[in-house]
Nucleic acid binder design. Structure first.
Length: 779
DNA sequence: TTGAATGTT
């Protein structure tokens, strides 16, 4: 596919004559309109005389006197790093700094520092491949600092991470390495937490955060270098950023871009970035021996349990990591391994076994327990104890457990899939990719040589597993993404240079959905509503519901509901207390549905009732304290954005009989495309337009008599369920979206006939009243 | 009659 840039060589900004001495002072952090942006600040330092340092002292550096931007050598940097003063702030360096420096110089990347600099000088975009343990995430950004000289240019270096914790912990580590206070020269920026300041020159951030920044500053003009780390994970945000970087690179020849990735797909990245040069650095891991099963396994869970116990009975000391697919499977497996382990302990001379479950919805404290050491031998000199961790693929990338020597890999994980035809995302247990299998095996070689037991045949690995997991962009509903791209100034989505272009049908569905939500007009241009919706970190339907809610006199309540719908489930239902949990939930139940029930629970949480100990109150009421506090956080952020956009925060008085009706109507303003109607048999529902037969999720508080419902999500598991539902009146739907509810667009059938009846009734009513009711669309 | 992998703004 041809690369598309909306600038041409004739663009005045591209003329070399403009590259010098322009607007040296730029107010940091101020968004710049894209066409006014001057991306050439850095060029004043290119190919010019050596920089004059030390004028005034505070920003200059005597240690780096004579450094010329983009001419630094490894030796020069090495000398500057040796002190005695910190090259970036002139403060004396601590002993701790020198201790860490010794370790850093032992990292594999350090040997290739000069090679890296040579390549960095010679190219705008560079692909960097380093295995785990190479030190790339901590060292490369520092190598760049010594070459970009941010203390002189005022421009920053950004390094993105797919996960918040990684951004935070790496920033902390690098601040220590550079002997600076976290938040000053080195900082991090993640949602809800901006730990950077006026001195910040190196910023670790989540990829989603950089994407947000790009929406307000299309040229990312505050950076001299952008490093996209863990690019092989191919998150939605990384994929969009990569496409964006290709465009920005054309507009800003001074901007340096580094794509960092694990080995496998390096060539694909090179090709995508116009044959960018590649630098590869070896990792530092121990060899892992791979074993396959001779025959395919029928039941992978059973085979996994057998393998774990066999390792325990026959292999030397070392902990075991088993990959399974989900919470229930994992808890079940843990129970069985414990039972069998106890039996082995009683009947043989095996050592004791401790078993831990690991998955994302566990609290951080529970997750922490996997780092407990293995149990000691039962008696001195006896067989050593062993730890078994049974985990989802959270242990594949997000969490690293040292001491793992054996990995058991059945070859499956739950993966998101998207069906654009019925606009449904669901989770499916699917075979993993070769890349995942390698990553899993690698987890056995962190501390010493290890073994990986694959519960599939070698033939299956070679012939049946795909090379890479499909990038997320090919497995998602793209409504949000398309809105973001529009806000990023990408008008021609069809020609946007995606590394892997999404299916045209997925793209069309997203455009259609945004058009119905009135975020895009019929020509696909961003509307005022769409522009505003893109400011909110929400799905477009939620954003539209929130923006429209003042019209329904209930923006305070919709604000709470929007936050509630953006955090994990607030109702908890422990396996051993289901009945009590269900009873507790019924105390908050509202007859009109689950949304209002959630709102009741939230209001109770915020009321006197939950005091003085809200955590204990949540426990008693089977509510998740974590979800509710995170809901408060999200709510506060959304409220700030509402105020910024002059959206009023209003409530209908609670005594008013319209209080709940207004909320239900406001819900329809975002979710009018997620409506289901009860069918003749009274048990099943059918979704409007898509005509999918669905069941109410058993967690609903709603009794069966509701004819029309809006639903928050469609969950495809053993059956088709709609979850989190509230009853509505079909008349509201015509008022809210006369376009979507244009009767001509409906197939003949139950839904259409019912809607026709509603319209006829309305007409008779109007004739009777002799006046026309306000039927115009809300927008 | 209840299968929520992992992330992010």
């Amino acid at each position: 596919m041809a690369s598309v840039s909306r600038r041409t060589a004739e663009d005045p900004l591209d003329r070399p004559s403009k590259r010098h001495k322009q607007g040296a002072e730029k107010v940091k952090g101020e968004p710049i309109a894209e066409d006014r942006a001057n991306p050439y600040l850095a060029h004043m330092f290119d190919n010019s005389e050596p920089l004059q340092n030390g004028n005034g002292g505070s920003r200059g550096s005597s240690t780096m006197k004579g450094f010329i931007r983009h001419q630094t050598t490894a030796k020069m940097a090495h000398v500057a790093e040796d002190g005695p003063l910190n090259p970036f702030n002139e403060k004396p360096l601590s002993q701790k700094y020198f201790d860490i420096l010794k370790l850093r110089r032992n990292l594999p990347v350090h040997l290739q520092r000069q090679e890296f600099l040579d390549m960095y000088h010679s190219t705008q975009i560079l692909v960097f491949v380093g295995e785990t343990g190479s030190g790339k995430t901590t060292q490369i950004p520092q190598f760049v600092l010594f070459d970009d000289l941010p203390h002189l240019t005022g421009l920053q270096v950004a390094c993105t991470q797919p996960r918040r914790v990684a951004a935070m912990s790496v920033a902390k580590r690098v601040a220590d390495e550079m002997d600076v206070k976290l938040g000053e020269e080195v900082g991090y920026n993640i949602r809800f937490e901006d730990n950077t300041g006026s001195k910040t020159m190196l910023k670790y951030m989540t990829d989603g955060m950089l994407l947000r920044e790009a929406m307000n500053d299309h040229n990312l003009s505050r950076y001299s270098c952008i490093i996209l780390d863990e690019a092989h994970e191919r998150t939605l945000a990384t994929d969009i950023l990569m496409g964006l970087m290709k465009e920005i690179a054309v507009r800003r020849p001074d901007l340096k871009i580094i794509i960092m990735s694990a080995t496998l797909d390096a060539q694909k990245f090179q090709r995508y970035f116009n044959d960018a040069p590649l630098l590869a650095v070896p990792g530092r891991t121990h060899p892992v021996e791979i074993y396959y099963t001779p025959e395919p396994e029928r039941d992978y869970v059973e085979a996994a349990l057998r393998t774990v116990l066999q390792i325990h009975a026959t292999e030397p000391e070392g902990d075991i990591l088993l990959f399974l697919t989900g919470e229930e499977e994992i808890e079940d497996a843990c129970r069985k391994i414990k039972l069998e382990g106890d039996e082995l302990l009683r009947e043989t001379d095996c050592g004791p076994l401790s078993v831990f479950a690991l998955y994302g919805t566990l609290s951080p404290a529970q997750q922490q327990r996997i780092f407990d050491p293995a149990p000691p031998p039962r008696k001195p000199g006896g067989a050593p104890g062993r730890k078994v961790v049974v985990s989802t693929n959270i242990a594949e990338t997000s969490l690293t457990i040292d001491g793992i020597v054996y990995v058991v890999d059945p070859g499956f994980s739950k993966q998101k899939v998207y069906n654009p035809r019925i606009r449904v995302e669901s989770l499916l247990v699917s075979p993993i990719s070769k890349a995942s299998a390698q990553q899993r095996a690698g987890r056995a070689g962190r501390t010493k040589p290890g073994k990986c037991f694959r519960l599939y045949t070698e033939g299956a690995y070679k012939k049946e597993l795909i090379e890479q997991t499909h990038p997320e962009i090919l497995r998602s509903n793209l409504a949000s993404t398309v809105l973001e791209l529009k806000k990023l100034g990408i008008d021609d989505l069809v020609h946007f240079d995606f590394m892997d272009p999404p299916a045209p049908e997925t793209m069309m569905r997203a455009l259609e959905e945004l058009n119905y939500l009135a975020c895009l007009d019929d020509d696909g241009n961003l509307t005022v509503l769409g522009r505003m919706a893109s400011e909110f970190p929400l799905d477009p339907a939620l954003a539209v519901m929130l923006i429209t809610s003042p019209e329904f006199e209930c923006s305070n309540e919709i604000l709470s509901l929007t936050a509630l719908l953006s955090v994990p489930q607030i109702f908890v239902r422990p396996a051993n207390a289901r009945k009590w949990a269900d009873e507790a939930k019924m105390r908050f139940a509202h007859p009109d549905g689950d949304h209002l029930t959630m709102l009741n629970a939230y209001h109770a949480f915020k009321s006197e009732a939950a005091q003085p100990d809200p955590m204990a109150w949540c426990r008693e009421n089977y509510l998740s304290y974590r979800s509710l506090t995170s809901c408060d956080n999200v709510r506060a952020q959304l409220e700030r954005i509402m105020v910024k956009n002059d959206l009023l925060l209003v409530s209908t008085p609670f005594e008013d009989k319209k209080y709940y009706i207004n909320i239900r109507r406001a819900l329809c303003a975002g979710f009018f495309m997620q409506v289901a109607k009860r069918t003749g048999n009274g048990k099943t529902y059918v979704t409007v337009k898509d005509n999918q037969t669905v069941l109410l999720h058993p967690s609903t508080v709603l009794a069966q008599e509701s004819e029309w419902l809006i639903y928050n999500e469609f969950v495809l598991t053993s059956k088709n369920y709609i979850r989190t539902v509230t009853q509505i009146k079909p008349e509201w739907l015509f008022e809210i979206s006369s376009v979507y509810y244009d009767i001509e667009t409906f197939q003949k059938g139950e839904v259409r006939s019912a809607l026709v009846r509603v319209l006829d009734k309305q007409k008779r009513q109007e004739a009777l009243n002799g006046r026309s009711k306000g039927k115009s669309s809300k927008r």
